[in-house]
Amino acid sequence: MDIDTLQGYAYFFLTVFLTVGLYAYIYHLYKNKKDESGVDYEEYGNMALNDDIDDTPVKSVSDKKDK
């Protein structure tokens, strides 16, 4: 087994390992959309798209204080 064959195998297995790692990370992000307090921050992704003055807010805020 020469160095070229060894480099080919190493490149292939590194590519497979990084691809599996990337898909595992993406799955982890979409599985755990909410944080510990229960807030889903993916809703805030539309703030950049819906930023007109007439658009509805992502989360409504009331002036009344809850006690």
Rank of each mutant, 00 (worst) to 15 (best):
D35M: 04
L14W: 14
Y23Q: 14
V39L: 11
D52K: 10
N32F: 04
D4K: 01
D52Q: 09
K59L: 09
F13S: 08
Y41N: 02
K67G: 14
F17G: 02
S60N: 06
V20F: 02
A10N: 04
H28K: 03
L22M: 12
N32D: 05
T5V: 05
K33T: 10
D40L: 00
K59M: 08
T15H: 06
Y44F: 14
L29Y: 13
T19A: 13
E36Y: 10
E36R: 03
A24G: 02
L14K: 15
L14R: 11
Q7R: 12
D63L: 05
L6W: 08
E42C: 12
Y41E: 07
N32Y: 11
D51H: 03
T5P: 02
E36H: 07
E36I: 09
I3G: 01
Y25S: 06
D35R: 01
D52A: 05
K67P: 05
N50F: 08
V61P: 04
F13G: 10
A10C: 03
L29G: 02
D40G: 00
L6Y: 06
K67C: 05
K65V: 07
Y44R: 06
Y44G: 02
Y23P: 13
M1V: 12
T5H: 12
D63H: 06
V39I: 13
L18T: 10
G21A: 01
Y30F: 04
G45Y: 08
D35H: 00
S37R: 14
D66R: 14
D51W: 12
K59F: 01
K31A: 15
D51K: 10
T5N: 05
N50W: 14
D54R: 01
L14C: 14
Y41I: 04
D66Q: 10
I53K: 09
L22E: 12
E42M: 15
P57E: 01
V58N: 05
G38D: 01
K31V: 07
Y27M: 10
D4V: 04
D35N: 15
I53A: 05
Q7K: 14
L22N: 03
D2Y: 09
H28Y: 11
E36P: 06
I26T: 08
V16L: 04
V61M: 08
L49S: 13
H28W: 11
V39K: 06
L6K: 11
D55P: 00
Y11A: 14
I3L: 09
D51E: 08
K64V: 13
L22W: 00
Y25V: 01
M1L: 15
K31Q: 14
L14I: 11
A10K: 08
G38H: 03
D51P: 02
K34T: 15
T15N: 08
I26A: 00
D63F: 05
D63E: 10
E43R: 04
K34H: 05
K33F: 03
T19H: 00
D63M: 09
M1N: 11
T15R: 02
V58Y: 07
L29H: 01
D40R: 00
M47A: 00
K64Y: 13
S37N: 02
Y25C: 12
I26W: 08
A10F: 11
E36N: 09
M47H: 06
A24C: 13
K65Q: 07
K64S: 15
I53G: 01
M47K: 15
E42Q: 15
T56V: 03
K59D: 12
F17P: 09
L14P: 07
D54S: 03
Y44H: 00
D66G: 12
M47D: 02
L14D: 13
D63N: 02
